[in-house]
Amino acid sequence: MNGRKPFVLYTAMAFGYAFLYLPIVAVIAYSFNKSRMVTVWGGFSLKWYGELAGNTQILDAAQRSLLIAALTATLAVCLGTLAGLALARFGRFSGRNLLSLLTSAPLVMPEVMLGLSALLLFVSLEQLVGWPERRGLTTITIAHVTFCICYVTVIVRSRLVQMDHSVEEAAMDLGARPWKVFFVITLPLIAPALLAGWLLAFTLSLDDLVVSSFTSGPGASTLPMVIYSKVKLGVTPEINALATLVILFVAAGVTIAGWMLHRQGKATG
């Protein structure tokens, strides 16, 4: 290897990383800008965070989004784990292809399609059985769980496939019942995958604009919906502050979880 190529490589890498991080760093920097003008630096100030704290519309939406994300992640992890378990451990069974298709199709389905189809289901259900009367938290959560299941399934399934099956078989041979084997052996071993799946489902739900817009009803705007309508009107320092908080919150969560998983991985070898 001669000396020129690493230089070209490092320049290209530096450019790529700068491209990934510069916009985010700029938003964070400008959230502390005193001036209302988004492009002029008017000195350090926390006043946009103060205004954010007084904006009930944003706080309401944030609360709703966090609740939806937590519910979605929990339900998606339960259902996705079952699906992953079936696909990785049950061998060949009738319906395997269908389950495999159903857990991978939403991954490649465009968001607009997921949102539109979920809404049409809720409207048809309302006509047929009178439920859901109002669209909002429940309908958004159901639609989010549906696509989040697939991400959890992928994670859990790949973890189970990598995992040594012999421990489970040994427990089974010693007379443990399948359900006990799952709770005592399989579950602790796939716990990192469950945590990763939960976090991924949580952030996907928290981030989603399109599916929520289709399945939401009046007075049930989620945080991305509020941000979207504000951004459509123009860049505001308040959104800079909000973006900073969301980005730091997610980055901190992912970093802590990653560090915990790393440590656990070291401890268990």
């Binding site: 991305p224 973006a243 997610v250 980055a251």
Partner: peptide, 8 residues
């Protein structure tokens, strides 16, 4: 960045 909101 993949974990942070694509909208933001």
């Amino acid at each position: 960045p993949f974990w942070t909101s694509s909208l933001l």
